[in-house]
Write a protein that binds this DNA or RNA. Structure first.
Lengths: 196, 196
DNA sequence: TGAGTTTTGTAATGAACGTTATTAAACTGG
DNA sequence: CCAGTTTAATAACGTTCATTACAAAACTCA
């Protein structure tokens, strides 16, 4: 069986992500996947291997793309305090208003459901978490060099703090709780993260 | 079909919780459930209705029992700062070393996988979250009355902060990341939560 | 002990699962 | 326009799913 010709592999993968995101690994049936991706099952097997490989590829793709939207927001705002707020606001927005209609964070769902259950997920998801920690921390380090943060600022510790807070916001979004409530107190959180 | 006589309903329900916790709603097969619960499927249907009702009952039971172990730890420690630390330490310990071998938090998994997908879960899980917020906040209010916290202390906001932090710790536990790393910086978090 | 009822175990149900063989269609180069 | 090859769709595979009918065993109370 050869590969299909005129279809967009990236779009199909994105569609698969949305299905896995909404229904989980076990909850997503091949029928759910193929109909969302606009291909038949033989094509899916030809292009992606099988359901399991497709899932791993979905994780990789999301990790390098959508998943780090808040990180990008954090890195592209020059002022560090505004950057922290941008990170959290982006998290909330992304987790509540994603175009696919899915709520929360795909990677967070993967952690909840497949670590220790589906082969190959643990390493990927651990890397995603520690990678985010380090990426946040490196921005803090840069600010220290610039003199915008004190020399004894514990970058990694605060990066983890920031990331942990994020998970609570994601949980509330996924539970479809009021988004405005979640936004309240955001300024204090930013100050706190940056406090010595 | 009548109800089985000599088996412990509570133990069976707890076993079901552990299966759902580890495998999720879709991932848990009736075979997984019945063999863990030590009953045959006809008995399960007689006692709990069906898989769906069993799941809802598992949520209720966990909400009123295991799920609030950190809340109890928080409420039973007299000193408020130590209480905050006790809450977080209990969270970490519970999420990493539960006797069942399951990692993270069952309710967190439920939110990730079944809100909007399995009927009856959304209200329950929303109540669990906001209920925890309020229970934490009420302790803060009590401390305010006692003069241990300033009169303008924003109890609910800090309760939410505390709960959100918890989710990050739970995520790391579920991802099987180093527990000690998660414990580091705990003292700062407590001070921060209580800061004006 | 023995009739009647309740509990337990087995087995069968139809549907849906992931996966693949097979057939039909579309495109290619000559 | 036709032979050869690549892509798409259908249909079938065996398995497992949640659920239930049914048969065997155990207990209750006389």
């Amino acid at each position: 069986m050869g590969r299909p010709r005129n279809f967009n592999r990236d779009e199909a993968l994105q569609a698969a992500i949305n299905v896995f995101w909404k229904k989980g690994y076990d909850g997503a049936s091949m029928k759910d996947l193929t109909s969302a991706m606009g291909i038949n099952s033989p094509s899916l097997y030809a292009v992606f291997g099988d359901k399991h490989q497709l899932y791993l590829e979905a994780i990789d793709r999301y990790s390098n793309d959508d998943g780090c939207a808040p990180l990008v927001a954090f890195e592209s705002e020059p002022d560090i305090e505004k950057a922290v707020i941008a990170f959290m606001r982006s998290t909330i927005d992304y987790a509540s208003n994603h175009e696919s209609g899915s709520k929360g964070c795909f990677l967070g769902n993967c952690v909840s459901t497949t670590v220790g259950e589906v082969e190959g997920t643990t390493e990927r998801l651990q890397d995603a978490i520690t990678g985010a920690d380090e990426r946040l921390a490196s921005r803090f380090e840069k600010e220290k060099e610039l003199g915008n943060l004190p020399a004894d600022f514990p970058s990694l510790e605060r990066a983890r703090l920031m990331f942990d807070l994020r998970q609570g916001q994601v949980l509330r979004a996924r539970a479809e709780l009021d988004q405005d409530t979640t936004e309240a107190g955001l300024a204090f959180r930013a100050k706190m993260i940056l406090a010595v």
